[in-house]
Write a protein that binds this DNA or RNA. Structure first.
Lengths: 175, 175
DNA sequence: GCAACTCGGACAAACTATGTCTGAGTTGGG
DNA sequence: CCCAACTCAGACATAGTTTGTCCGAGTTGC
C-alpha cells in the first residue's frame, strides 16, 4: 500500500495557496517546494477537476482556492490526487473454486471485505476532520509563527519581481 | 493508494488454514480459491517469513498456522504481505526550496506528516482488533453455519484422495 | 494587435506489482 | 538403505502503473 508522491505536494500547495489571495502560478509553487514543475502542474490539474482550486489563464493567472481553507478537508485533497477507489477491493473469491457460493447468497460483501472497508472508513474519518486551515495553523505553530508570513511575503515578492527577472533567471539564481 | 491483490488471498488462506489441524499444501489453497498456484505460493512464503504460518516439506507437508487463529490479527497478515512501510512518507519539503528550514528546527515530523500518520494509525487500530478467528466466525455466520464445515471436509477429502488422483487430474475434474 | 504568460492534455521512461518457472530439500515407502 | 514423489523456496520474464517531460491551445495585459 503506497500513497502517490503527489499527495504531499498537493497538500503543501493547498497550504501555500491559503496564504495568498491572488492567483499563484504553478511554476512558483514548484520553485517554492523544490518539485518538478510539469509534474506538479499535472496534480494541480487534478485539484482543479475536483473543484478544490480554480485556475486563471493569462499573464496574471495561476491557481487559487475555491473556498476558504477551513472548508477544505485533507481527505478531499487526498481523494483528488489518489482517486476515490478503495485500497482493498474484493474479487469475490467466495464465488470461485470448488466451493463457490451462488451469487444469490453474495448480496452482502464478504466479511473480510467488510473488515477492510471499516478500517478504511476509520482512516477517512481521521482525514475528514482535518482542514487545510488546521494544517496551516499547525505548521505556523511549529515554526513559532514565522512560516506562513514568510510564505506570503515570498509569494508577493516573487509575483512583483516577475517583470524584472525571467522565471528561468530567478530559478537559476536560487538553484 | 492501492493495496496488493495478494492481501485478499492471504487473508482467505489464513481463514482456511484455521479450519485444518494438518498441513495444507499451497496447491490445495490455490485450487480452493481459484488463484494462480505459484503466485499464491510466493505470498505464503511472505507469511512464513513473518512467523504467521509454518511450512513443512515432504509428501505430507504444507502450511499451517503457528498460533491459534484468535491470536493472529488481520493487521499482521496485511503487514506481512504489503510490508510495514507507511503509505504516506514525508520527503521533507520544508527543507527544500528558497524558504528551506534548517535541519535543527525539523526534529519533529511535519504537521502534514503527523496528520497522515494519525490517519494510518486509526486504520491500523481497526485491523489490529480483528483476528483471523473473528473473520472465520463471521464468514460462517454469513453462510448460516455451513461454510467452515464445508471447507474442512473438502480439505480432508482432497488430502485423502491425493493418492487416488493426481493433482492435475483433480484440477481438471473440478475445473 | 501583439507578445508573453498561463493552463491543459498528449507523449516517453522507470519502477513496482504480477505471474511463471526451475532448482534444492525432505518425507515416506519399497 | 535407496528411490521416487511431493513439498517449499528463491531466481527469472512480463504487464501495468506511476513518475516525469514535452508541446499546443487559450487568455490576459499592454
Amino acid at each position: 500500500m503506497k500513497l502517490s508522491n503527489g499527495v504531499e505536494w498537493a497538500l503543501h500547495s493547498c497550504v501555500t495557496l491559503s496564504q495568498s489571495r491572488e492567483p499563484v502560478p504553478a511554476s512558483l509553487l514548484a520553485e517554492l517546494h523544490g518539485t518538478p514543475p510539469s509534474y506538479l502542474a499535472k496534480h494541480l490539474q487534478a485539484l482543479s477537476r475536483a473543484g478544490i482550486v480554480h485556475s486563471t489563464a493569462g499573464q496574471a493567472g495561476g491557481y487559487e482556492l475555491t473556498r476558504p481553507a477551513a472548508q477544505i478537508s485533507a481527505l478531499e485533497v487526498v481523494r483528488a490526487i489518489d482517486g476515490g477507489e478503495p485500497a482493498y477491493r474484493c474479487t469475490e473469491i467466495r464465488q470461485r473454486g470448488p466451493l463457490a457460493l451462488p451469487a444469490a447468497r453474495c448480496e452482502r460483501p464478504c466479511a473480510i471485505a467488510r473488515a477492510m472497508a471499516a478500517a478504511e472508513d476509520a482512516w477517512a474519518d481521521a482525514l475528514r476532520h482535518v482542514t487545510v486551515a488546521d494544517l496551516a495553523a499547525r505548521i505556523d505553530a511549529d515554526s513559532e509563527g514565522t512560516a506562513m508570513t514568510a510564505v506570503s511575503s515570498w509569494l508577493a515578492a516573487a509575483r512583483q519581481g516577475s517583470g524584472h527577472a525571467t522565471r528561468q533567471g530567478r530559478t537559476h539564481v536560487l538553484g
